[in-house]
Structures are given as structure tokens and as C-alpha cells.
Amino acid sequence: MEQSKRQTLARIAGDIRAGILRGVYHAASGHPGGSLSIAEIMTYLYFEEMSVDPENPKWEGRDRFVLSKGHCAPALYATLANKGFFPVEELDTLRKIDSRLQGHPDMKGIPGVDMSSGSLGLGISSACGMALTAKHKGEPWRVYTVVGDGESEEGQVWEAAMFAAHYKLDNLCAVIDWNGLQIDGPVTEVMNPTPHDEKLRAFGWNVVMADAHDFDSLEAAFAAARACKGKPTAIIARSVKGKGVSFMENKCEWHGTAPKEEQYRQAMAELGQEV
């Protein structure tokens, strides 16, 4: 990847992190940890990988995205806002009574949201339904979904994994955000779902490992997904929960806690963002 592109994407990821913090801070609730861990993934998807049109969010030929780990809606909203689906200022209305930015993604009300999600395990199945439809209709568009590592404890994730391989959904790419932490503690201690790579390969998937915060690594992984025929691809993306904010990194307690004002100011300062 060219240095200039890498720098541009890094700047966008910074803006998305700022958008996440701004939304969660103003809502005084929400999920910053797992939102920050997918900032580069969301950046790469919406600014490099996927074909979407902010002027025409329901364009039939668009690539689809399902945030299966729907509680990380702040990351999706910040990405959509920075892409131009709605004003960045609207992020301040997150979770408020008169806002369309619901606590979890709502496809009926929010431009650019392709599927309502939030109840864990359901989103990846809906992504399978979309990919199956594209195959059925002979359409070239692709389907992307981001699944949480904790989310993969849901049985339905494995039902979907079986389905996607059975129907050879090579137009489906699932990114597993492997930040290693869930609400009650380390994922491997709460209920160990590993090894994802061996399990998914056994289910019939193409599996690619990636560094969730390295654009060159993500570029190679998504290219490998595109190149793979006859199988769905899982990108197991090693990430840091709370990435980019020193006091949030690798801390379970920032899974679903909003920063207080002083913490918000410090976090934004660390990101080089104005409050």
C-alpha cells in the first residue's frame, strides 16, 4: 500500500475513533471498547473495499454490511457519518429519545444501515441470507459482516458457518474481531470458543489471519477473501479492545462504559482530536 493511502486511511480511522467517543460521551452510555477495536476494519471496508453510495443508500448494486456485533453501533455510525451518509454532528444524538441513532443498528431509520442487529448471533445469519440472494440472482455484489469474538459463543454463529459453507457463499466475508475480551473477562476464560481458525476450516471456510490495526494486513486479507472461490472467507483480525485510548486499551470495564468529561477530553487529546 502506498504511504499516502495508508496515511489517509489512518486519518479516517482517527476521525472514526473521535466519532465513537463523541457519541458515547454525549449518550453517557454505549460500548466504546469493541467499537474502537474495529476502527481500522470499518475504515478499510467503507473507504477501500466496499462499493456504496451515500447519496443513494439503498442502491441495489451496493455491497452489503451487517454489524453482527451490533452493540458496536458507535463505530458503524461514525463510519457512515464520515462517509457522508449523514452529518457527523448527528453522532452527538446517539441513544437520545428523539434520535434515529438507536443504541443498536436500525435499518428502518438510519441511512446506510443494511440490517438491524444487536442480538448476538443473528447478524451473521442475515449476512448469509444476503449472500445467498446475490448468488441466486446472479448479482456481483458482496456481503461483509463483523462478528465479535465473544459473540462466537452463540450457537447460531456456527449454524451460520455451516450454512455459508454448504451454499459455497464465496461472496461472503466475515471478520472476527479478536480483541480477546468480553463483559465478564477474557474470552478464553469466560467460555473459550477457540481455536477459531481450526474450527472454521473444519466447517469449510477459507481462513485468513490479520492485524486489525494494520491497513497493509487488512488489504491483503480482504484481497485473499475476494480471490477465494467456492468458500466463504473468515478474517480473524487480532485487535486491541479500546485501541487508541491509553486507559481503555485491553480493559474489560470499557466494554460498555462511557467516559466522564475529563476522560473524554483526555481520550480526544490522545487521538489529536478537538473536543
Partner: peptide, 9 residues
């Protein structure tokens, strides 16, 4: 949930 994805498409 697959059916929902099909309908959404």
C-alpha cells in the same frame, strides 16, 4: 435470520 437477509435483499 437468513430469511430476514433474503427479504432485506
Amino acid at each position: 435470520s437468513v430469511a430476514a437477509g433474503i427479504a432485506a435483499s
